[in-house]
């Protein structure tokens, strides 16, 4: 049994919003509301959900890129959220980020090798020679040629830029890599190249990924466990096979049934569950289950009390009254 690398408990992120003419009480938007999950060493946990569900905010909070309101993020027996100063700098070496858009996440005025080198300059105490060797190794590991080291980002294609982003994330030999939609800005054929690269690197360096995506096909391929988010809450959390073959939460079922597929037997088997309407206003959340107003099987109690995330067997957790 691999050990738990990241243990997130009760993480909440809220943003202050202005409403009305400035005098009234402050109101808050709870982008991530009391979520808990674990990631095991060498495995991939995916967080899926639609836009606005809070998946990216949760990832940013884990990496200390947005301030969390409450909760703990345990990495190696230290709470990431409490670290300060030098301690935090040391922790940043262990958590690195791959961003969604390879066009805006690379500094256009720097050459590729100095982009990859930057985390080493900022976070480690290695000598210049060591850094140069590491950068050269990274270029090879992500499938870029040594002569491309002196080029600028605009001279690369989208897929190659994402490779630079991956090399940069690997530079400090992190324990946890957070991939925030790493392939959604890429063309389908290039997407496959990057996904294969990420899995190859995971095997070679025993990396742990926190993988954020809205593409269920990609998630199915990449993850060992999956957490489904809706309106800032985790509604279902299970291992890969269990989630995809027997989804329990009505939202997960609807989400899976909405994915168009080329497999004819799958298409015949799945009946599309339509969820009408729009998600509720995140500033003015309804009482009870947040999915109740769109849920096809909602009952009276759903709009009264909020369901807890509870285990329904073999670690498959669901937040629904009716499961």
């Amino acid at each position: 049994m691999p050990k738990t690398l990241l243990d997130v408990d009760g993480l909440t992120v809220r943003f202050e919003v202005k409403r009305g003419s400035g005098w009234g009480k402050k109101s808050y938007l709870y982008a991530v509301d009391d979520i808990s999950f674990e990631v095991k060493q060498g495995e991939t946990l995916s967080i899926v959900g639609e836009s606005g569900s809070g998946k990216t905010t949760a990832a940013l909070a884990v990496a200390r890129l947005v301030p969390a309101h409450s909760g703990t993020v345990m990495l190696d027996d230290g709470n990431v959220l409490e670290k300060q100063g030098e301690d935090l700098r040391q922790t940043r070496q262990k958590v690195q980020f791959i961003f969604q858009d390879p066009y805006s996440s690379l500094n256009p005025r720097k050459r590729a090798d100095s982009i990859v080198r930057e985390p080493l300059d900022n976070l480690s105490e290695k000598s210049e020679d060591e850094k140069t060797t590491i950068v050269a190794e990274l270029f090879e590991a992500v499938g870029l040629r040594p002569e491309q080291m002196k080029l600028f980002p605009h001279q690369f294609s989208g897929g190659q830029r994402q490779r630079i982003g991956i090399a940069r994330a690997l530079a400090t030999q992190p324990e946890l890599i957070i991939c925030d939609e790493p392939v959604s800005a890429l063309d389908v054929a290039v997407q496959a190249q990057i996904l294969n690269l990420l899995r190859k690197l995971q095997r070679e360096y025993n990396l742990t990924y926190l993988f954020i995506s809205h593409d269920l096909g990609v998630v199915q391929h990449m993850s060992d466990a999956i957490a489904v988010m809706y309106m800032g809450k985790i509604v279902e959390h299970a291992d890969r096979i269990s989630l995809f073959t027997s989804p329990r939460h009505p939202y997960t079922q609807a989400l899976l049934s909405a994915v168009p597929t080329v497999d004819r037997t799958q298409r015949a088997k799945q009946k599309r569950i339509l969820i009408p309407g729009d998600p509720p206003d995140p500033i003015n959340l309804p009482k009870g289950c947040r999915f109740a107003n769109r849920c096809p099987i909602a009952e009276a109690q759903c709009s009264q009390t909020e369901p807890e995330l509870k285990d329904v067997g073999q670690g498959h957790k669901v937040a629904c009254h009716l499961v």
């Binding site: 389908v188 054929a189 997407q191 496959a192 996904l195 269920l216 096909g217 990609v218 199915q220 391929h221 990449m222 890969r240 096979i241 995809f244 073959t245 899976l256 994915v259 597929t261 080329v262 497999d263 037997t265 799958q266 088997k269």
Partner: peptide, 9 residues
């Protein structure tokens, strides 16, 4: 090249 959701996982 696209990972599809298939019936026999």
């Amino acid at each position: 090249c696209v990972p599809h959701i298939v019936s026999d996982m």
